[in-house]
Amino acid sequence: MTRAATDRVFKGLALRLFAIACLSTMSALVKLAETRGATLGETMFHRQFWAALLVTGWIASGPGLESVRTARFAAHAGRAATGLVGMVFTFGAVLLLPLAEATALQFTVPIFATLLGALVLKEKTGWHRWGAVIVGFVGVLIVAQPGSGHFPLYGAIVGLMAALFVAIIAVLLRQIGRTESAATTVFWFSWLSVPPLALVYLFQLKAHDPATWGILLGIGMVGGLGQLALTGSLRFATVSAVVPMDYSSLIWGTLYGWLIFGVLPTPYTWIGAPIIIASGLYIVYREHKLHHAHSPVSAAETPA
């Protein structure tokens, strides 16, 4: 790998780490806002409204707003609707569970992506990845400890539903991405989700102290920055290279949980989370290996 290529990969990794730090901070702010009286509808509206302004400014100062013209409005509307449902589950998990546990359950996204690929997209899935899926769900059982009562079972279900919707959205983005740029997709998701959230917000609007308004503003700005950094990371490095950086969110979830809410992960989480992480990394590794094996370049490099 050349020096320039190496520098690009490091930029991608740095952007991904920054994005995860931002999104983890956003989750902590969502939970903090709820303790100060903000509702789920309020936090979701502020997340999307301020992020939409930030994304619009970024596009306007770069490629220009002309670049977000699309002939696939229906596809963007479907992605926005799915994204809103997924956001309900994602924010709901943050509110119902300790931050570290909510984060650990998000690591099941590669597991659900494998299931969707096999069952919905009819992708060929070998025993390696099915084995990783089974191992990953064992890790989930260790974290959740159903029947133990160490955190609400419905909270674990909400957390798993959040991961499922992230995987569904990944499939939608793969389809939309054949014709649309990442910036275009982010722009339309941001703005198409604002009107329905504004309608919900009208019924939940209430007064807050300045600190709480600042937290709500922070949710949108930090979330928007994280979204832009996620998009940017893939300009410099491949998905298989940057995905391992996502697991740094467990560090942030643990740190914020301890510093802000005085809660540390349970021993079960310390055991189960690494199992889920290992499962996800192995699935990513297998997908990368199979993709490399089937690419024209690698085929030419492979001895007969």
Results as ranks from 00 to 15, higher is better:
202 L>S: 15
176 I>G: 05
23 L>N: 11
65 L>A: 05
181 S>A: 05
297 V>I: 07
207 A>D: 10
193 S>E: 06
113 A>F: 02
44 M>K: 08
75 A>S: 13
223 G>E: 06
225 L>N: 11
132 A>S: 12
247 Y>L: 00
63 P>H: 14
269 T>C: 09
243 V>W: 03
217 L>T: 06
288 H>R: 14
102 A>K: 11
258 W>K: 10
67 S>L: 04
285 Y>C: 00
64 G>F: 04
122 K>N: 14
149 G>V: 12
141 L>D: 12
156 A>K: 13
239 V>L: 15
188 W>G: 05
61 S>Y: 10
82 T>C: 15
90 T>S: 13
277 I>D: 11
41 G>W: 05
58 W>K: 06
221 M>D: 02
191 W>Y: 08
247 Y>Q: 02
304 A>T: 13
4 A>R: 12
153 L>S: 08
49 F>M: 03
186 V>L: 15
40 L>F: 02
204 Q>K: 13
204 Q>S: 08
237 A>W: 07
204 Q>D: 12
46 H>K: 04
145 Q>V: 02
288 H>I: 00
304 A>I: 01
75 A>W: 14
37 G>I: 00
201 Y>R: 14
300 A>F: 15
222 V>G: 03
68 V>R: 08
230 L>C: 05
290 L>Q: 13
188 W>C: 03
2 T>R: 05
30 V>D: 09
274 P>R: 14
214 G>Y: 07
12 G>T: 04
189 F>K: 09
228 L>T: 04
295 S>N: 09
224 G>N: 08
261 F>M: 07
10 F>R: 15
162 A>S: 15
262 G>F: 07
264 L>Y: 14
77 A>F: 14
19 A>D: 05
183 A>N: 12
10 F>M: 09
60 A>Y: 03
126 G>K: 06
272 G>W: 07
267 P>I: 00
186 V>H: 10
18 F>V: 00
277 I>Y: 12
298 S>K: 14
85 V>A: 14
56 T>M: 07
29 L>E: 00
209 D>M: 01
266 T>S: 14
203 F>P: 07
280 G>L: 00
178 R>F: 06
92 G>S: 03
236 F>K: 06
120 V>R: 08
75 A>N: 08
45 F>T: 10
56 T>E: 00
240 S>D: 09
8 R>S: 11
192 L>R: 09
118 A>S: 08
71 A>H: 15
230 L>G: 07
269 T>D: 07
180 E>V: 00
56 T>G: 03
4 A>Y: 01
225 L>P: 12
295 S>D: 14
106 Q>A: 02
6 T>V: 00
179 T>P: 03
46 H>L: 05
167 A>R: 04
191 W>M: 03
223 G>C: 07
64 G>V: 04
28 A>W: 00
175 Q>H: 11
72 R>A: 04
56 T>A: 11
30 V>F: 05
47 R>G: 01
48 Q>N: 12
96 L>M: 15
283 I>Q: 03
83 G>N: 04
